[in-house]
Design a protein around this nucleic acid. Structure first.
Lengths: 173, 173
DNA sequence: ATCATCTCCTTAGCATGCTAAGTAATTCAG
DNA sequence: CTGAATTACTTAGCATGCTAAGGAGATGAT
């Protein structure tokens, strides 16, 4: 019985490793691409999130909201936004409603850069992903969304447990 | 015609973003897991590669081979192996055949740790991936391998081009 | 045989991620 | 209304990734 589930685990390990490998390969390609644009991939994620938020009709994002969207922790957000502010692409201010928070928004210079990058960005991503045809990309998206929902529920479990170690036992035992 | 390909690009962007999100979620779960084991995910990758190489009948791996397997650059390998050596898990020596190289192998302490972790590791991965059933995991693996092969051929193109900026134009124009 | 080149590794310096701990503002219990 | 708990952000310190540049050994053209 255990040997059966061992075999069932093999495709789990293989798929797990494949996600990591593909992510690594994407990074190897995207890093020099962003370097040529004068920013980093992480910085692009911030700028992109701020544009999206403007399109939703809001002027800025609180730091913690940014962290939720980008899946990174508050201290990392602080550093990232700080460097973007030093570059003049982003602006940080205190909303009057809650002085604990800081909100971030694009400067005109930041918006200009995003507009410039967006003109070609979709083509770049399309080129990376053209190893799969459209049907395959949609299938991949479906599978990753399903897996992502599962993983997200695990991270919520971690959050509820406080000082968890992230193991199966913590979450199930 | 461009508007058609714009629509075709949408699923490329969505799938691209899904890979990044799933990788981020995996990291959020695996990081505390490895922390509880006394090492990091990157360090585990090194130890795991060294065990695999032993199973292939070789005693150790050159630094640069390690980098190829883990998709990281030589300076990162130096630091990673250096810290593992300081922890006594790994051993670095000069092969007589080529004094430029250094080879890395597990110490007994390192092998003991790997053996201990491997007892439960597959269950942990299986738990992460159980959001998909076995057929879905195999389908995901197939898609990611196909995409990975495409991306790998792009990185080879970057290597051949020397100081490339990693854009579509560099590789196609 | 020798000089140029290539390969492998390392160091220096930076960006990005994390946890732990600290400060300031808000909220809630009494 | 006041004190405790919570929430948001920051700082400090570490690990990991990168590029650029340098040194030592191997290779190759002449």
């Amino acid at each position: 019985m255990l040997s059966n589930s061992d075999k069932a685990g093999d495709d789990a390990v293989a798929a797990f490793r494949a996600v990591i490998r593909v992510y690594g390969l994407l990074g190897r390609i995207m890093q020099p691409y962003f370097h040529g644009l004068g920013i980093s991939g992480s910085q692009w994620s911030v700028l992109r999130a701020l544009v999206r938020v403007e399109q939703e009709g809001r002027e800025g994002l609180r730091m913690v909201e940014l962290g939720d969207r980008l899946l990174i922790r508050p201290p990392s957000i602080s550093g990232l936004v700080g460097r973007l502010q030093k570059s003049g692409l982003v602006w940080r201010y205190l909303p009057k409603s809650d002085l604990r928070c800081k909100e971030v928004r694009l400067t005109p210079k930041g918006r200009d850069l995003v507009d410039k990058i967006l003109k070609t960005h979709r083509n770049q991503i399309r080129y990376l992903m053209c190893g799969l045809n459209s049907g395959e990309r949609q299938e991949l998206l479906t599978l990753l969304e399903k897996l992502g929902n599962h993983l997200y529920s695990i991270t919520n479990g971690l959050k509820r447990n406080g000082a968890s170690t992230g193991t199966v036992e913590d979450l199930r035992g």
